[in-house]
Computed example of a mutant assay.
Amino acid sequence: MYNDAILDGYGAAALRLKRDPLRIKTSGSEFPLTLGRDVSGVVMECGLDVSYFKPGDEVWAAIPPWKQGTLSEFVVASGNEVSRKPRCLSHIQAASLPYVGLTAWSAMNQIGGLNKDNCSSKRVLIFGASGGVGTFAIQLGKAWGAHVTAVCSEDASELVKRLGADEMVDYKSGNMEKQLKTLPLFDFILDNIGGSTEKWAPDLLKKWSGATYVSLVTPFLVNVDRLGVADGMLQTGVTIGAKAVKHLCKGIHYRWAFFTPSGPYLDEIADLVDSGKIHPVIDQVFSFSDVPKAFWKMEEGHARGKTVISVTNKK
């Protein structure tokens, strides 16, 4: 839940940069725990090894989960996690993109092998297309030239079409699986919802063509909580290995994807934003004093894009 809470750190809020993660002043295991993953703000201080940022630079970042979060006036980040903010966005707009952008980038590019040079003839299917990751993934696929089919509810159809989706399938229609099976087979599937979908959706992929099914819903955290770190990681490895082999025998690739913090990837995303190919999708902006309300809203689900926390009154 907390991964969708975002900090807009402009004005009095700021971003302190430290190159060496060992010099981070706070740890993700300390309490009270600070939530939030995304940040957009102004650099206040830089570590001695940071030469490519300076105080006053406007930057954005997504902080990894093993560090303290971003719902605060000051955030400490490693230099390689930070990128210069897209020039065309306000800090509130920019704060809605890093975490979902890097998650979608990890799934589609790093795991799925998609990029601007090989997508022109690819068919992409996205489950959970109206959420934070889904809305970004639609735009990324279209920016790379793919044909994108979005699965969402009917009331989100206007949004996903505006973002560039070529086709929309309503999962509330009662015959989602049947509708999808009438369409041509896909080259790539991004699954943001998991559950029963995983049992039949891989059959929608082209067999023996390098087609890939990537799920963002994994048992990793559940296994670690239940079995401990070592045994939980072992059980997770066994599960993904068994599923990968099972699907490989059917002629498709099965993978899991995770959020990966990366300043260089954010640089590429910033270029797409500044060129007008990717736009922020913000469901609602809350003031810092209304953080509990923001989390209650997220708990209800069905958000259209991201929920943003503005730490100051400035934009």
Rank of each mutant, 00 (worst) to 15 (best):
G305M: 00
L204P: 09
L125Q: 03
G195R: 02
H147M: 10
V238C: 12
D267C: 06
L180F: 02
V273L: 08
L159F: 12
G56W: 01
W144H: 00
D49P: 08
M108C: 00
I309Q: 04
Q284P: 07
I189T: 03
N192K: 09
A61M: 05
R19A: 15
L185E: 08
Y99K: 06
K67Q: 13
L234Q: 15
V273A: 04
C119Y: 10
G305T: 00
T135H: 06
H147F: 14
K306M: 04
A244W: 03
G251I: 02
D117H: 15
C46L: 11
P55V: 07
P264V: 08
H302V: 14
G112C: 01
A94T: 05
R16Y: 13
P264L: 05
T307P: 07
I309W: 01
W144E: 01
V43W: 02
S275G: 03
R23T: 14
G113W: 01
F220M: 14
L266T: 09
G210H: 02
H279S: 15
G164R: 07
H247G: 10
K250Y: 10
V100E: 04
S29W: 11
C46H: 05
E154N: 11
V151S: 04
A242D: 12
E45C: 13
V311W: 13
S78F: 10
Q179W: 12
K246I: 08
V273F: 07
F295Y: 14
H147V: 12
A303M: 11
D231I: 11
D225T: 07
E299T: 08
I193R: 10
S51V: 15
F220W: 12
Q68D: 05
F288Y: 09
S106M: 08
R84D: 05
R304E: 01
I282N: 03
L71D: 00
